[in-house]
Amino acid sequence: MTTDAVIAEILAAHPREQSALLPILHDVQAEFGYVDAAAERIIADALNLSRAEVHGVVSFYHDFRSAPDPRPAVQICQAESCKARGIDMLMQAARDAAGERVRLAPVYCLGLCSVGPNARVGDRLHARLDEAQLVSLVTAQ
């Protein structure tokens, strides 16, 4: 199926109104891993919005990317509770393990604040990480 056809299918599953924009963008992001200018244009036409309005939304939220990034991603919590449990001391080792191959994305809180340092890969959560565990988590991607 072509990209346009997939987006058309996603649009057909949602009401044609602006309030459906975030759910639509989530679906497109999940399908392709990004929402690019071409996708923005199709969505804008379908919802009777300008492309600028759609792009404004895409660029506002951290979850949406405008270009593909084929690298696997590891989200590492960088918020206060994980700092209190020493995440900052582990980051250099994680960066070394990731290199250019794995994307380390900061996340501000996974809501596991009593058992940090925490990380998330896809929908899998990891808690009570020490340096060796974090490094092997990054290396395993």
Partner: peptide, 26 residues
């Protein structure tokens, strides 16, 4: 159920409402 998109500020009630309406969470 509506899912946010990684913006902390959307926990503020008016920006949450904008987000629900499909706008930037301002």
């Amino acid at each position: 159920v509506r899912v946010g998109a990684g913006a902390y500020v959307c926990g503020e009630e008016t920006s949450l409402l904008n987000s629900l309406e499909g706008k930037r969470g301002e």
